[in-house]
Design a protein around this nucleic acid. Structure first.
Length: 461
DNA sequence: ATCGGAACTG
DNA sequence: CAGTTCCGAT
C-alpha cells in the first residue's frame, strides 16, 4: 500500500509480442522462472534484473560489463540496490541485502564472484545459454566446445549432440526446433524438461566458470540495416553495442572484444529469431541478406550483430524485464530500446558511482582474473553442493593450465575495442575441432559449419 | 568488502 | 523457491 512500487506499471505482464508461455520457456531456465502454474511464481529475478541493467546504457553508470567475459561491476552498489528495491518493492533494500541475494546465486552457479575486484561478479552464461537454447548448434559453438574441453578432456564428453538433445526434448521436432524453442510453453509445458536440461549438462554448469579463454566467435558485426526490433532493442542503433552493452574487455585486455561474445547471442545467432515469425511473418527482415546464417537471415535475425549485447533485450524483454524496467532513477523509464531512443541517454548519469568511490579500477585487479577463474573453478568443484549431485559421477574437471585472462586495467570509458570485422577473425577462430567428440559432430554440426562458411565467403566477397 | 548461516516471507 | 532480513565471522 505504501509501496510506490511501480513495477507493475512499468512492467506490463508481458510485452505485446510475448505470450507467457513463450516468455518463460524461451528466455530462461526454470531456475529463472517457475512454471506459470506455480502460484506466486514468476517474479522478476535478480539476475534477470542485473542483466537488464547491464544491457541498458542508462544504467552503465551504476553497473556495467567490465573485465573478463561475463564479468560485470556494480559501480554504484547503492543505486543498484535501490533500483532492485524499487523493482521488488523493497524500500529497505540495500547493497548488503542485494549482495546476499547475489551470493545466493553462487551455489546455483548463475553467478560467481570475481575475487579481488570489488563489486565485481561474473555471470555463468554458458549455463544460461545451454539451458535456454539446448538445441542450438552447440557442436559448432566454440564456446561450448571450449567448455567441453575444459571440463572433460575428452573421454566422458557429455553428449550434447543434436540427437542427444533431441532426445531430451522429444517434443521439439527438428523441423520446428527453432520455433519450438521459443514456444515450448505451448508445445511442451514440461517443467521437468527444464530440470532435465540442467542436469543434462552438468559439464556446463560446473565447468563454466572455469573457462577463461575467449570462447569466442560471433562478435559484433557493425552494420546498419534498418531493422526494427519491436521488443525494444535494435542492435544496429547507435549505442546498441556501445560500450557496456555487452560483456567486453577493457582496453588493455589481451583479447579483442569480439573474443568475448555473448554466448547467449552467439547461440542465438545460429538460430532463427524467435520473434521473427511474429514480427516478420514474411520471414524477411532485412536485407542484410546473406550476411548471416541462413536461418537468421531468413528470419530477419541479424546474424552476428546480435551476438553482442548480451542476452539482450530479446531475452530480457521476454522475461518481462525487458519491459520497462522502470523509470528508475531518473531514467526516462521505458527504456525502450536502450539505445534506441534517440540515444540521448547514452550518456547516462555518471552516477554517484564515484561518490562511493565506486569501483575504481584498481590496478590490483591485475592478478585477479586468472586467480579468479581458477578459484572459481575450485569453488565449483568444492561447493558443488546441489549441482554436484547430478554431476557427481562426472569425471574431474580438468583445468586448463593457462588462462588467457589478463588483468584488465579497467577504465570506465573505454572505447570499445570492438573489432570492425569480427567475422574475419571468426574464420581463424573457428578451427574445426580436431578432437571433436563423435557426439559433437553430427550432421547438423557439419551443416551449420557449412552454412557459416558460406556466409563468410559471401561476406568476404 | 565478502561470506554464509538462519529465520522468515510471499 | 527466491529471495529478504539480520548478523557474526573473516
Amino acid at each position: 500500500m505504501d509501496c510506490n512500487c511501480v513495477s507493475d506499471l512499468l512492467l506490463p505482464p508481458v510485452p505485446t509480442l510475448w505470450t507467457p508461455g513463450l516468455t518463460k520457456s524461451i528466455a530462461f531456465p526454470d531456475w529463472a522462472y517457475k512454471p506459470e502454474s506455480s502460484p506466486g511464481s514468476r517474479q522478476i529475478q535478480l539476475w534477470h534484473f542485473i542483466l537488464e541493467l547491464l544491457q541498458k546504457e542508462e544504467y552503465q553508470g551504476f553497473i556495467a560489463w567490465q573485465g573478463d567475459y561475463g564479468e560485470f561491476v556494480i559501480k554504484d552498489p547503492d543505486e543498484v540496490a535501490r533500483l532492485w528495491g524499487l523493482r521488488k518493492c523493497k524500500p529497505h533494500m540495500n547493497y548488503d541485502k542485494l549482495s546476499r541475494a547475489l551470493r545466493y546465486y553462487y551455489n546455483k552457479r548463475i553467478l560467481h564472484k570475481t575475487k579481488g575486484k570489488r563489486f565485481t561478479y561474473k555471470f555463468n552464461f554458458s549455463k544460461v545459454v545451454l539451458v535456454n537454447y539446448p538445441l542450438l548448434d552447440m557442436a559448432n559453438s566454440p564456446f561450448l566446445l571450449a567448455q567441453n574441453h575444459f571440463t572433460n578432456g575428452s573421454s566422458t564428453a557429455p553428449d550434447c549432440s543434436p540427437e542427444a538433445l533431441q532426445s531430451l526434448f522429444p517434443r521439439l521436432p527438428d523441423s520446428v526446433r527453432a520455433a519450438s524453442l521459443f514456444d515450448r510453453g505451448a508445445t511442451a509445458p514440461s517443467p521437468e524438461g527444464d530440470k532435465l536440461r540442467l542436469d543434462a549438462f552438468p559439464f556446463l554448469s560446473s565447468g563454466a566458470p572455469c573457462y577463461s579463454k575467449p570462447p569466442s566467435l560471433l562478435g559484433p558485426y557493425p552494420r546498419s540495416p534498418p531493422f526494427d526490433y519491436p521488443w525494444g532493442f535494435n542492435p544496429y542503433l547507435p549505442g546498441a553495442f556501445s560500450l557496456n552493452n555487452c560483456p567486453k574487455l577493457p582496453p588493455g585486455s589481451l583479447y579483442p572484444s569480439h573474443f568475448y561474445p555473448n554466448p547467449l547471442q552467439s547461440s542465438l545467432s545460429g538460430l532463427p529469431h524467435p520473434f521473427s515469425s511474429l514480427l516478420h511473418p514474411g520471414g524477411d527482415a532485412g536485407d542484410r541478406a546473406g550476411t548471416g546464417p541462413a536461418g537468421a537471415t531468413r528470419l530477419g535475425l541479424p546474424p552476428y550483430p546480435v551476438s553482442m549485447s548480451m542476452g539482450r533485450t530479446d531475452l530480457l524483454s521476454g522475461v518481462g524485464l525487458g519491459a520497462r524496467e522502470g523509470s528508475p532513477p531518473g531514467v526516462g523509464g521505458l527504456g525502450i530500446g536502450l539505445g534506441l531512443a534517440a540515444g540521448p541517454p547514452g550518456t547516462r548519469p555518471q552516477s554517484p558511482s564515484e561518490r562511493r568511490g565506486g569501483v575504481k579500477q584498481d590496478p590490483e585487479s591485475d592478478s585477479d582474473l586468472e586467480i579468479t577463474d581458477l578459484s572459481d573453478c575450485s569453488s565449483d568443484n568444492e561447493n558443488d553442493h546441489e549441482f554436484s549431485k547430478a554431476a557427481r559421477s562426472r569425471s574431474q574437471i580438468i583445468l586448463e593450465g593457462k588462462k588467457g585472462g589478463m588483468p584488465p586495467p579497467l577504465s570506465s570509458s573505454l572505447p570499445p575495442p570492438m573489432s570492425p570485422h569480427p567475422l574475419k577473425s571468426l574464420v581463424p577462430l573457428t578451427p574445426p575441432r580436431p578432437s571433436l567428440p563423435p557426439s559433437l559432430s553430427p550432421s547438423l554440426a557439419l551443416h551449420e559449419r557449412h552454412r557459416e562458411t558460406e556466409t563468410l565467403k559471401m561476406i568476404h566477397s
